[in-house]
């Protein structure tokens, strides 16, 4: 028990130091380097590097955390499911269950696992669907959505019997999550679109890209809502069962 606490505090220490280092030192340094070395012309490379760096604190804390092989395996399975989902629904354009599966996994397994599942889903599914400079953006977008969903699931609301349940068990919360997920994913990916087409970043161009992507946002949001409403209950039930049966993911 004591040992566990010790490792917990060390983990927190590392996390506490590393996250600010990445966010407040490395990323500005990279931005400065971009301006200084390439004369402000290389937003796209710098942005891809920043997106990748933004994933680092999550990766490191995943490495440092005490995890059993069972927990690792469950994370791998959920990543596999989200990749398979992209295959299963590939004939329908824009109808990707990845966001939904990441959100559902995060609801049950926590934000950190959610980030890892989201980021790895991007890497693995792009092995089949095409790797590119957009991969870091997808990694961060899906990862961040997973992390946010994990945080949101901790908010509790009173239920009918007077107890408290996670807000994510409510239907309206899932609908909101689906819309936010679709919009956030599309808007983060539009940063890449603008950088790719322009080489530099301009707000008017960005809003134009966001407006042009609006039909896609609607498709994403609609498909997210469909997936979340249909899959959350059975998936969460199965994940909760595994969690109780094998005593995993108990510390959140």
């Amino acid at each position: 028990m004591e040992e566990q606490e010790k490792s917990l505090s060390r983990r927190q220490k590392v996390k506490r130091v590393l996250t600010p280092v990445v966010f407040f030192v490395l990323i500005p340094l990279l931005l400065a380097l971009g301006v200084w070395a390439f004369g402000d012309r290389s937003y796209n490379l710098i942005a891809a590097a920043v997106a990748l760096l933004a994933c680092v604190p999550f990766f490191v804390s995943f490495e440092r955390r005490q995890k059993t092989s069972r927990e690792i395996m469950v994370i791998a399975v959920m990543t596999g499911i989200s990749v398979l989902g992209r295959f299963v629904f590939a004939p329908l354009p824009g109808f990707k269950p990845v966001t939904a599966v990441v959100i559902i996994a995060a609801i049950s397994l926590g934000g950190e696992a959610g980030f890892i599942i989201g980021a790895l889903s991007a890497i693995v599914s792009n092995i089949y669907f095409g790797q590119g400079p957009w991969t870091p953006f997808q990694m961060f977008s899906w990862g961040a959505l997973g992390f946010l969903a994990g945080l949101a699931a901790k908010i509790t609301v009173p239920d009918k019997e007077g107890g408290r349940i996670s807000v994510m068990e409510k239907r309206w919360a899932l609908i909101v999550a689906g819309i936010v997920g679709g919009a956030l994913y599309s808007m983060l990916m539009d940063v890449w679109t603008v950088l790719a087409a322009e080489g530099t970043f301009g707000l008017p161009r960005y809003w134009a890209a966001v407006a042009a992507a609006l039909p896609w946002v609607i498709v994403y949001a609609a498909s997210n809502i469909v997936f979340l409403l249909l899959l959350t209950k059975p998936f969460v039930k199965k994940l909760e069962r595994i969690k109780i049966k094998y005593e995993i993911f108990t510390i959140k």
Partner: peptide, 10 residues
């Protein structure tokens, strides 16, 4: 650990 998850997923 991340590489393990990656290879497992693959």
């Amino acid at each position: 650990r991340l590489s393990l998850v990656l290879s497992m997923t693959l």
